[in-house]
């Protein structure tokens, strides 16, 4: 090993593979996310985008390959070590995944409540709610009483409440109307920039890609087909990317009819 002059990438996946039974979801995923960059992974449904994200965060353990965080191998981190890693992560789930039994502010402050008294945590929660455009009166309501867009915002507030260094977004705009989707895209972009966080997003919404990506990775068939900066997306000369961004039925990606 030679000493590298530049710091290692924040997140680096090398030859990551994962199969569920006979179904090889990830075959060979290699990609990097630079410090403070926003990587968006695109690809059709069932191509392994979610599994990739869950491997990095530790919800799924890959069968082979390595995942590095700041150069440190975290592929099989468990117990305290995994907890320490998770403290640096925030995640916004597709369906927001808010805890039904807890009021909004306890959802937002869930992690903060582990270390701080309830009064402080509540103040932090209200501040984060305000950051995502929600008024303090939402704090005492329950998730089931909120609209889909509001739930997504609360989920975003929860993901950023403990000021994580790395934030994961799982299909942040799925199921939202175009206007609300735009609001969420704006919020993600602003928050990631102002926090200086590194972001990893999966989506198949091209509007979202163009709004929040610095870099784009195209995943198909369990392999990264293309990885490059957003500026190169339209002239990638990659048939997979081309077909996907133009939403064509014909091409190397076979559409199941």
């Amino acid at each position: 090993m030679t000493e590298s002059p530049t710091p290692p990438p924040r997140i680096a996946l090398q030859n990551v593979a994962k199969r569920f039974g006979a179904n090889a979801v990830l075959r060979d995923v290699t990609l990097e996310v630079g410090r403070g960059r926003s990587l968006v992974i695109i690809g059709g449904s069932g191509t392994g985008k979610s599994v990739t994200l869950k491997c990095v965060i530790g919800l799924i353990e890959p069968d082979s390959g390595t995942i590095r965080l700041d150069g440190e191998d975290i592929t099989h981190a468990r117990g305290r070590r995994r907890d320490a890693l998770l403290n640096r992560f925030g995640m916004l789930f597709q369906g927001a995944a808010l805890f039904d039994s807890l009021p909004v502010w306890r959802n937002v402050a869930f992690r903060v409540l582990q270390t701080r008294p309830a009064k402080d945590a509540r103040e932090i929660a209200i501040e984060k709610l305000r950051r995502v455009g929600l008024t303090p009166d939402v704090a005492d309501r329950f998730p089931a009483e909120l609209s889909g867009g509001m739930q997504k915002r609360v989920g975003l507030a929860r993901a950023i409440a403990a000021e994580p260094e790395i934030i994961f977004f799982d299909e942040p705009t799925t199921g939202l109307d175009p206007i609300m989707a735009d609001v969420i895209n704006d919020l993600i972009r602003e928050i990631v920039s102002e926090m200086g966080a590194t972001a990893m997003t999966i989506t198949h919404d091209m509007t979202s890609v163009r709004r929040i990506a610095d870099d784009v990775a195209m995943l198909h068939d369990g392999v990264v087909q293309w990885l490059g900066p957003i500026a190169d997306l339209d002239n990638s000369a990659n048939p997979y990317v081309d077909q996907f961004i133009h939403g064509r039925a014909d091409g190397p990606i076979a559409a199941v009819r």
Binding site: L59, L86, F89, G90, A97, F110
Partner: peptide
């Protein structure tokens, strides 16, 4: 089971719980 299906159990894990 509903918490599992709606990813609330995964969310707990990501919140170090």
């Amino acid at each position: 089971a509903t918490m599992r299906v709606t990813e609330q159990i995964d969310a707990l894990t990501t919140l170090s719980t």
